[in-house]
């Protein structure tokens, strides 16, 4: 029975995505609300380019450790976006992954981006590496790398653990900028008061649209909102039905 429900849910969601995409047409940007953290990130990237500083991007851990999380790949558009923006900059962004698969994917993303821009000579392997096998070793690596004087900001995105507060605090003490887009509610609560800007809840999934304006991505964000509204209606209806003793 559960298996059938999974199939139905997947089918319905996929169908809705296609319907919304057809409805959206070729609208690239849609009417998606602004996300402050990502707007701030754009300003930070521009400012760092002007100042000749680089951005450290922490992709968090992805698949290797205990949690099987798809959220690890959310940061990869950030890798591509900053690589494009810093094409002519002296300091290229530094990408730190807490997982082997994620590190390999970020290397591929960097290579493909530079190849697409016909500037493969800009690609340097040492600008993206696997920074730690455990969450603590990853935290220590991000702290060590964030401390370098050529760094001007830290952007953490993906599956970020609460102990990543340590590098955020370090960056704050250096008067640099930190922006965090974490998937764990615990991390969001811990880091929110410390960093310059943070995303709350599902806002992190909106990043990809900021970097790659595609009708499919606009449609998927609209679908997310629609599903959320449907769930809220379902929950309220269930509460009312339970209140009257119907279920």
């Amino acid at each position: 029975m559960n298996e059938l429900l999974i199939w139905i849910a997947l089918g319905v969601v996929s169908l809705l995505l296609i319907i919304i995409k057809i409805g959206t047409g070729k609208d690239r940007d849609g009417n998606i609300r602004a996300i402050i953290a990502f707007e701030k990130l754009e300003h930070v990237i521009s400012k760092l380019l002007e100042n000749g500083k680089r951005l450290v991007i922490g992709l968090g851990s992805g698949y290797q450790n205990s949690l099987l999380s798809i959220n690890g790949i959310i940061g990869l558009p950030a890798v591509k976006c900053t690589a494009k923006q810093s094409l002519l900059a002296d300091e290229k962004p530094l990408i730190l992954s807490g997982d082997g698969s994620l590190a390999s994917m970020s290397q591929v993303a960097l290579t493909e981006t530079y190849r697409g821009l016909r500037a493969i000579e800009q690609y340097k392997q040492e600008n993206s590496f696997f920074a730690g096998t455990t969450s603590m070793s990853y935290t220590a690596s991000v702290m060590a790398e964030s401390h370098a004087k050529e760094n001007g900001g830290l952007f953490l995105v993906g599956h970020i653990r609460p102990e990543m507060l340590l590098p955020v605090d370090l960056v704050h003490n250096k008067a640099s900028v930190s922006i965090v887009s974490a998937d764990e509610p615990g991390t969001q609560a811990v880091i929110f008061p410390n960093c310059d800007s943070a995303t709350i809840g599902e806002e992190m999934y909106g990043f990809v649209l900021r970097t790659e304006s595609q009708p499919w991505l606009t449609a998927s964000l609209k679908l997310q909102d629609l599903l959320r509204i449907l769930i809220v209606i379902g929950l309220v209806a269930a509460i009312i039905l339970k209140l009257f003793g119907i279920i």
Binding site: V13, I74, E202, L223, Q224
Partner: peptide
Amino acid sequence: GMALGALVVGIR
């Protein structure tokens, strides 16, 4: 919200 986001990313 996070689960919906992950689901849609998975479908994408």
